[in-house]
Amino acid sequence: MDTLNLEPLGTLPDANGAVLVELLHNPARKLLYVRWFGNLTGREVIYVARESLKLQTTMHFALVLNDKTNATGDWVEAMEWLEYEWLPQIMTGGLRAIAYVFSPDMHNQLASMEFFERVRQYIPIQMFHDRPSAWQWLQRQPPMRSTLAPAPQV
């Protein structure tokens, strides 16, 4: 990951004060790298997603590398909110692709697969078992459009 030239944005704590996520970015590539830790719940996932929306208003990142390598837990109760609230807002802010690195935890993998199935109809997303492959895939995504095109009139 050193080749990404990531700059720290900070961390977000869980309810007990432990690090829940570490946020890093590469401004030149408009990349947000989200590294998760601990046993995740739907509430925590929504909390981090809300914080990412705040970042999007100023940073306008186009790529997300979502790394759940160090996370466990079932956060499936966050799915409706992520699909119908978070995703439209983050895409309006410029997000164009998500690379998703699996957790080794089976419960987390099941929630991740549900997220993948819901999101892939709206935006390019791919699942990976390692960060280098995820980053290579993100780099191959087409360039971002300069403006958001209005929805076609029917």
Rank of each mutant, 00 (worst) to 15 (best):
P13C: 02
R131D: 07
L63I: 05
N39Q: 12
F115M: 13
L65T: 06
A99V: 10
P88R: 02
L82I: 13
P124E: 02
A28F: 07
R140I: 00
H25Q: 14
Q136P: 00
I46E: 02
A99D: 09
E117G: 05
K30P: 01
M106Y: 14
V21D: 05
E7Q: 15
E80N: 06
R43W: 02
L65P: 07
G42I: 10
N5W: 00
D2Q: 14
A62K: 09
L55Y: 08
A111Y: 10
T57P: 00
A151H: 14
H107R: 12
L32F: 08
D105K: 01
M127K: 12
R120Q: 15
T3F: 08
F116M: 10
H107A: 14
M79K: 03
Q121A: 13
E77G: 08
L32S: 10
G94D: 09
E117Y: 11
E117S: 11
P132F: 05
L110F: 13
L9C: 03
D130E: 13
F37M: 07
A99S: 12
G17K: 03
Q121W: 05
L55G: 04
T147R: 15
N26F: 02
N26M: 02
P13E: 05
V119H: 09
N108Q: 08
L6S: 07
P143Q: 07
M59Q: 15
L31E: 01
I46F: 00
R145N: 13
S146G: 03
M91T: 11
V101G: 01
R140F: 00
H60I: 03
H60W: 04
T92S: 10
W81N: 04
Q89W: 01
S112H: 10
G73M: 01
R35A: 04
F115C: 12
Q121E: 11
R118W: 02
A78D: 01
E85N: 13
E114Q: 14
S112F: 12
L9I: 06
R131W: 00
L138T: 08
E77R: 13
E114M: 14
L95F: 04
Y47V: 06
A151R: 15
P143T: 02
W137S: 04
M1C: 12
W135A: 10
G73D: 01
I98L: 06
I46L: 01
G94T: 07
W75I: 02
L63G: 04
V76R: 14
R131K: 07
G38P: 05
D130A: 10
R50Q: 13
L110M: 15
E22V: 13
A149Q: 15
F116K: 10
F116Y: 15
T41Y: 04
E22S: 15
K68R: 14
R145T: 12
I46W: 00
E85I: 11
